[in-house]
Amino acid sequence: MLPEERQLFEAALQNDAALAAALAQYREVTATLSARLSPDHQQDALKETLQHHRAIHFGSKGKVVSFKRYFTAIGAVAAILAGILLFRFYSHDTDYMGTYGNIEMQVAAERGNNADTLLQSAALYFNEKAYTKVIPLLDTYLKTDSSSQMALYYRGVAATHSGTVEAGLADLKKVYAGESVFKYDAAFYIALYYAQQRNKKEALSWLKLIPADAAAAAKAAALEKDLR
């Protein structure tokens, strides 16, 4: 706009309330959409953290069951637990991965964009333990957001299950080196991997890195107890 045109426009704004309101709305809309349509990796990372805590603090709602069914269920669970304990006692069970390695991939997807679809597909395969299908999806996702600690963590876990162990451990170590909510989960999983390989020394050294207030602390303490 030329200076003369600008002056005329500003004068018109002073005298025309409707024009001023329309301009204010235009500015509000463009400012809001500029911000909200731009990729926000900080927000993506925060959503990963929230999703992690959601699983901890908001479990699925308990169903109401009759007392008879309740006690039957408790009896069944107790019998299964006793069976597991007896089996482990007599077999000196060292299937640490089977005991502690059941990890579910959870994703928070709101906008339904391509990146979210990739994560959702990866989660479906991950939770079906189709790990070889997970890795290319997370590779693609990480090309769009290389800072996603969630994607690195799950790719690391998937890789340790699909023959590319070194790459998997490298991903997990990167996650541990960062400051995300997956930091100590990554340390735990590395420890678990070494425990499964019967590398007790290495497993214990990773377990020691997990502080008592971390979400993975209880699992870490249990695994340490099993190893000793």
């Binding site: 900080q42 925060l46 953290t49 805590h53 603090h57 400051e179 909510v181 930091k183 979400a215």
Partner: peptide, 12 residues
């Protein structure tokens, strides 16, 4: 704003 995981944990 920093995605401080300990602080998010505190909020929860």
């Amino acid at each position: 704003l920093r995605n401080d995981t300990r602080l998010v944990q505190e909020i929860y």
